[in-house]
Design a protein around this nucleic acid. Structure first.
Length: 220
DNA sequence: ACCCAGGGTCATA
DNA sequence: TATGACCATGGG
């Protein structure tokens, strides 16, 4: 009977194997993080970077400029990130909300449950996008759940995999020390691990999360 | 040529 | 509540 890993042990192994991921250090401010959170829905991050580069080149990396641009022009800037018509509409909806709320300085004052509910009310912002924004743009201790989280932790026998989003978020927040830097890194490591390892090794039988893992992934 | 990516909405039953 | 269709580019 193999022992099951704790959530903390999984984190240690992932960090040892993959190192810090430097996700969204907010170098260019919270608004860019929020834009990225919307654009990265079901989309490779490299494609999102191209779209954001377009916005920056057009000096449109702010809510007012995005709203004043013609929707077709906005969609054209977003083209590399895919779903460009959908995302143009979603980004506009988000920017309308953002300005109506009074921008970052007003939003960052709101308590987390209120901010989360308000985000979820914006068309195009679902639970994962809302939590991305809460964690990576507003530094709130919210654990982000995604498809990789379900796959990996199901394979590890720590969850069933068909739990609802809120159930899983609560479970992770109860089992991982409530710390923004930790939640930030943990989610990024899960994504990194899922992309790099779990697609080619579907049962996690020979990666850093398996007992007796090869040094290649364990970093030992 | 096929599969997938740092999801969410909407219609339908 | 639970599926299914739909959105669309770029890299492997």
């Amino acid at each position: 009977m193999k022992r099951r890993l704790t959530f903390t042990q999984v984190y240690r192994r992932l960090y040892t194997a993959h190192g810090p991921q430097h996700w969204w250090p907010s170098k260019n401010g919270p608004f860019e993080v929020m834009v990225g959170a919307v654009l990265t829905q079901n989309t490779a991050w490299t494609n999102v970077e191209r779209a954001i580069a377009n916005l920056r080149r057009e000096r449109a990396l702010n809510a007012r400029a995005i709203l004043s641009a013609h929707p077709r022009r906005l969609a054209n800037w977003l083209k590399p990130s895919g779903y460009f018509n959908v995302k143009a509409k979603r980004l506009r909806a988000f920017c309308r909300w953002y300005l109506a709320q009074g921008g970052t300085n007003a939003l960052k004052i709101l308590p987390t449950p209120r901010l989360r509910a308000d985000l979820l009310a914006v068309n195009g912002v679902g639970p994962e996008t809302a939590d991305d924004i809460l964690l990576y743009a507003f530094a709130r201790p919210v654990f982000v759940i995604d498809a990789y989280t379900r796959r990996i932790f199901k394979r590890l026998g720590l969850i069933d995999g068909d739990e609802g989003y809120e159930t899983l978020r609560t479970l992770f927040e109860q089992n991982v020390k409530k710390n923004v830097a930790r939640y930030n890194e943990y989610h990024a490591l899960i994504v990194r691990h899922g992309k790099e390892i779990c697609r080619t090794r579907p049962r996690c039988s020979a990666c850093c999360l398996a007992s007796g893992c090869p040094s290649k992934w364990s970093g030992l």
